[in-house]
Design a binder for these strands. Structure first.
Lengths: 207, 207
DNA sequence: ATCGTTGCCGTAACAATGTTATGGCCATAA
DNA sequence: TTATGGCCATAACATTGTTACGGCAACGAT
């Protein structure tokens, strides 16, 4: 039959080594050159194949970016998952630091995931729920904190969103700040984190 | 002499109407198509000139983007400047709302300015101190609030940075959120703003 | 008034890059 | 052995930023 369920080759166990090589090359290119430096020809050359290989295994540049996006969330989620699930302010702080640490160690990847540089990327990938697992870790931590009594009862998802927004604000502003000044990002972030958590803890109204 | 102080034509009063036409066309294109939709040919056609006009008046696409960047900050600063300088929590809240309102009414422009989509744009433009005037309004408001006694003594710049980061976090996360859910951005922002200001007000240690 | 210079403009070509058409090669199965 | 299917590389095409080149109009000098 001419119709196939997927126009992308299936990765039958060890088959798609070429796909993995291309993805690794793209990741290397992303790290060294940034999102705007991702060129199909360069990546293919780095992977040791022709440019059409990218189309064979990813359907084009968009597909490759989507794969990088998903891959980034996998790594990001894994980094967050390493934080001990103790609940309470301890876990929330450690999660925030792990979040920020990952964004600093993987700046280009973070920008690809959260910078919205690729028009339809977030829309396409978020429908797969690929970003939910990492956010779920945060929600889970908030819920544990609520259960532990360190946080008044409320909507864990909403509270997690406030945390997320605060953390992201510091990170994004520090990454590409429009005003060039202010040193000591670490201290600024730590102080902001204290305020952020204080604000959550002191919350009494139901969210 | 062959050497000129600037390789860009000077705008001797009414002279540079062409430059203004191109800038207006670029702004229209930015609004309708977004940053990634800015094409030299389209803009030139929209302005009623050939593509080389962009190079004559802006030195290329980068120069045009830089002009859009500066222009955006002018408008943004003007929007913030409309807030009454009463000082106190009132002015800080209104500034935050004016900030957010502008970002919502000019989403593509905001992304051009704060999204870091153009590699060298922030570095080039921030050296001109173009973003400082808007940030200065925020610093001034914080200083007034400190002087008024609603905020303990501290570094106004540092405190303003915390405000900026918090506001930007909500805006940026809502603009291209990786997880597609959660409605009621307005309420979330207002609640976050209350927490943010509470955190600042309850601050007692010198920043 | 005429001529020369200066500077903007448009056409067209060039370079880089994403994408697609085309044909070939190799592995696998009958 | 042969036929088929799928992956691959070469090469061409479309788009877009950029630059070379020639023209023309305005302004100033003689």
């Amino acid at each position: 039959m001419a119709t196939m369920s997927s126009n992308l080759p299936e990765k039958s166990s060890v088959e798609a080594e070429q796909r993995q090589r291309i993805l690794a090359a793209a990741l290397e290119q992303l790290r060294s050159e940034g999102v705007h430096g991702l060129r199909v020809r360069s990546i293919a050359a780095l992977a040791g194949c022709s440019t059409t290989g990218v189309y064979t295994w990813f359907g084009g540049k968009d597909g490759l970016l989507k794969a990088l996006y998903s891959d980034g969330f996998d790594r990001f989620t894994a980094a967050l998952a390493e934080v001990r699930k103790t609940g309470g302010r301890t876990q929330l702080s450690e999660l925030a630091r792990a979040y920020r640490r990952w964004s600093i160690e993987n700046p280009t990847h973070y920008r690809l995931m959260f910078g919205g540089l690729v028009p339809g990327l977030v829309a396409k990938a978020s429908l797969d729920g690929v970003g939910l697992s990492s956010f779920g870790i945060l929600v889970d931590a908030v819920q544990r904190t609520i259960d532990g009594g360190e946080l008044g009862p409320g909507d864990a998802t909403g509270i997690a969103y406030h945390l997320w927004a605060g953390i992201h604000g510091y990170i994004d502003l520090a990454a590409n700040r429009p005003m060039s000044m202010i040193g000591g990002d670490d201290e600024l972030f730590e102080r902001g984190l204290v305020r952020l958590l204080d604000g959550l803890v002191r919350e009494d109204q139901p969210s």
